[in-house]
Amino acid sequence: MSRVVVVGAGIVGLAIAARLAGRGDEVTVVDKEPDVALHQTGRNSGVIHSGLYYAPGSLKATMSAAGARSMTAYARSRGIPVQTCGKLVVATDERELPGLLRLAQRAEANGVDARLVTPAEARELEPHVRSVGALRVESTGIVDYPGVCRALVKDVEAGGGSVRLGESVLAIRTTGSRVHVRTDQADLEADAVIACAGLHADRLARASGIEPAARILPFRGEYFELAPDAAGLVRGLVYPVPDPRFPFLGVHLTRMIDGTVHAGPNAVLALAREGYTWSTVRVHDVRDALGWPGLWRLARGNVVPGAAEVLRSMSTRAFARSLARLVPAITARDLRPAPAGVRAQAVRRDGTLVDDFLVQTGPRQVHVLNAPSPAATASLEIARHLVGRLDALLD
């Protein structure tokens, strides 16, 4: 039995802690927030991803496909609302058809149950969609991720572990066979640490004696909710064909587990690591981002799509026009503001995005430095993988 401190009470940290506690390790979870899942986990679209978009053989591809199955099974076993509703990826212009075909080929390479459908077949699935072709993905689902996190906390505690909320980790140091975790309330000692610090992952790694391979840049994703009288325009999940010039998926429509329909997210650089609005500004965070050469190199390569994202952020009408490409009946009058999220995106010095999950290790330490979508989907599989890496470190 090992004593392990897990930093971070998002879904990845809690999945790791639950797995460790379930096999008999002594586990302590520490998080600075007063509750679990308050950042990326609790502010995403609730989608269980199929593994459609990711490079074949990548951790994202293999863990997303397996994670869709394990997350669905876990939610059902705990009585958490979950549905496998499928989604439709819609080409609205002939120029998008080659991209749609590439997605279909990637789906086949990744073992994802997907099929190309005609515009008429797309309308049978989503009567209000406009398309020149579409891809139907059967294994995509929706789930209550905060509910999953609450269940994982129960699993941790049932295994004898504890979850310490409202406590910030300041530094981690390894001395021989012990790891010392200094928080703003206590000094903890353990055999090992697994850090899942999300938006602050690179900073915590540096405070632990590990130089991160990339810098976290916060990208805010803003959402709207369709008004009740417009929610019937969408039955399930409707996505655009991703713009190959831009690293994000584009605004899409998601019928949530509670029956509401969310629209978004866009992707704009936030002015704080936890900058959920334009008015939230942290000078230290802005200076940190602007001082990273990778930000400027990323910006130079994405001027046009980046400007479109900012326009969507500033204008509800522009946001609605993007949605109307998918469902023409949607107008700005149908949109109601909904809580935004912030994606912790790792960016290398050369301006390239870290496209896969990124983990760095040190003496008795494992740091998750990049775990964007589909990390929630794959969280149980990530936990299995990282516990294995921890065991290898301690052997």
Rank of each mutant, 00 (worst) to 15 (best):
E211T: 14
S162K: 15
I194L: 14
E211L: 10
A195H: 04
D229G: 06
A227H: 10
F248E: 00
I194R: 05
G161R: 12
D155T: 10
I194F: 05
A213N: 06
G160T: 07
A195K: 07
E189V: 14
P244T: 01
T183L: 08
A186Y: 11
P228F: 04
L165M: 14
H200E: 15
H252I: 09
E225V: 15
C196Q: 08
A227E: 11
V163W: 02
T174M: 03
P242W: 05
V156P: 05
G232P: 12
E157R: 15
L249V: 10
A192T: 03
A197Q: 00
P242F: 06
H200G: 08
G159A: 13
I172A: 05
S162C: 14
D191V: 13
L237K: 13
R245S: 12
A190I: 01
V153A: 10
G198N: 07
R178S: 15
F246T: 07
V193W: 07
L165W: 08
F248P: 03
A197I: 01
D184W: 12
D184I: 10
E225S: 13
L204I: 00
L204Y: 07
V163F: 03
I216T: 04
P244L: 06
S177K: 11
L170E: 15
L233M: 12
E157A: 14
S162T: 15
L188A: 09
G176S: 09
R245K: 12
R173K: 12
F224G: 00
G209S: 05
Y239R: 07
F219R: 02
G209R: 03
A190P: 00
L165C: 14
L204G: 03
L188N: 04
T175N: 13
T174P: 02
A214R: 03
K154V: 08
G161F: 12
G209Y: 07
R206G: 09
G160R: 15
A197L: 02
T175I: 14
R245N: 07
P228W: 00
G236Q: 12
P242N: 13
C196D: 03
G159F: 15
H180P: 00
S162L: 13
I216E: 02
V169M: 04
E157T: 15
G250Q: 06
V179Y: 03
D191A: 13
L204E: 04
V179R: 01
L226D: 11
V169K: 01
F219K: 04
P244D: 01
D229M: 02
A158Y: 14
K154W: 02
Y239M: 06
I194P: 04
F219V: 06
V241T: 10
A227Y: 12
P242H: 13
I257K: 11
R220E: 06
Y223C: 05
M256C: 11
T174W: 09
A195C: 09
I216K: 01
R173I: 06
G176M: 09
A186G: 05
G176N: 13
F248L: 08
R220K: 11
A192Y: 03
P240S: 11
L188K: 00
R220I: 00
V241Q: 10
R255Q: 11
P240M: 15
L170Y: 09
I216G: 04
P242K: 11
D258F: 10
K154F: 00
